[in-house]
Simulated scan of single mutants.
Amino acid sequence: MTSIRWPIAVVSLVVSLFLLFGGYFAYQKFQIESPMEKAISQTSHIRDYSLQIQPEKITVRLMAKPSFSLQQDYIPLRRKLTDLADDRKLSLKLEDKAGGELKEAWNRMNFGVKEGIALQRYTQIPQAVSKEADTKGIRSHVMMDDRYLYIELRQGNQWLYRVLPLHKPASEVKDNG
């Protein structure tokens, strides 16, 4: 009599685990992954993308076409993906095509941008960007919403995108000064 109960218990366990994990993976595929892929594929000016979904974080890497715009393409896409991510943290990374002169210009204007964010002097940021960009013949576009600062730099067939948070999360280490 006891020998019959063990196989039933093992089969019940296997079926329960199959249903539990199968349901989780089906939910992830149909409620998160497929809608995100659809939103990305419907966004014009995206050449390619990769999507990595983890239990607490979703990472999306976008490879943009030269006609990609932070204002017209990135911001609406970020909003859609944030809604689809539910409670998971969304990390959206843009791959840019920046050469040496464009990267050097960003490195020189980076200090003024970070200082403007840290001191909340947001009107100084476009000035810091355009001052450096104008001397090198770089087209620049600076935008801001309530959470991020968006900087787009273009020179010839090269481009560089930066999306910087305006409010850094509170650190566990406090400054005693």
Rank of each mutant, 00 (worst) to 15 (best):
I8S: 08
I8A: 09
A9T: 15
A9N: 13
V10S: 11
V15H: 00
L19N: 11
G22Q: 07
G22F: 13
F25A: 01
Q28M: 02
K29L: 10
K29P: 00
E37C: 07
T43M: 07
S50Y: 09
Q52A: 09
Q54E: 12
E56R: 12
E56T: 14
I58F: 08
T59C: 08
R61D: 15
L62M: 10
S67H: 06
F68D: 01
Q72D: 11
P76A: 06
R79W: 13
K80T: 12
K80E: 15
D83T: 07
D83C: 03
L90H: 01
L90N: 01
S91E: 15
L92E: 07
L92Q: 05
E95P: 10
A98L: 01
G99H: 00
G100T: 11
K103G: 12
A105D: 03
A105T: 08
W106S: 00
M109G: 07
N110W: 04
V113Y: 06
V113H: 03
K114S: 14
G116V: 04
G116D: 03
I117E: 09
I117F: 06
L119Y: 10
Q120R: 15
R121V: 03
Q124A: 13
P126A: 09
A128D: 05
V129S: 02
K131F: 15
D134V: 02
K136W: 09
G137K: 00
I138W: 15
H141L: 01
D145A: 02
D146C: 00
L149D: 09
Y150D: 05
I151Q: 00
I151F: 00
R154G: 04
G156V: 08
W159R: 10
W159M: 00
K168S: 14
S171N: 12
V173I: 14
G177E: 01
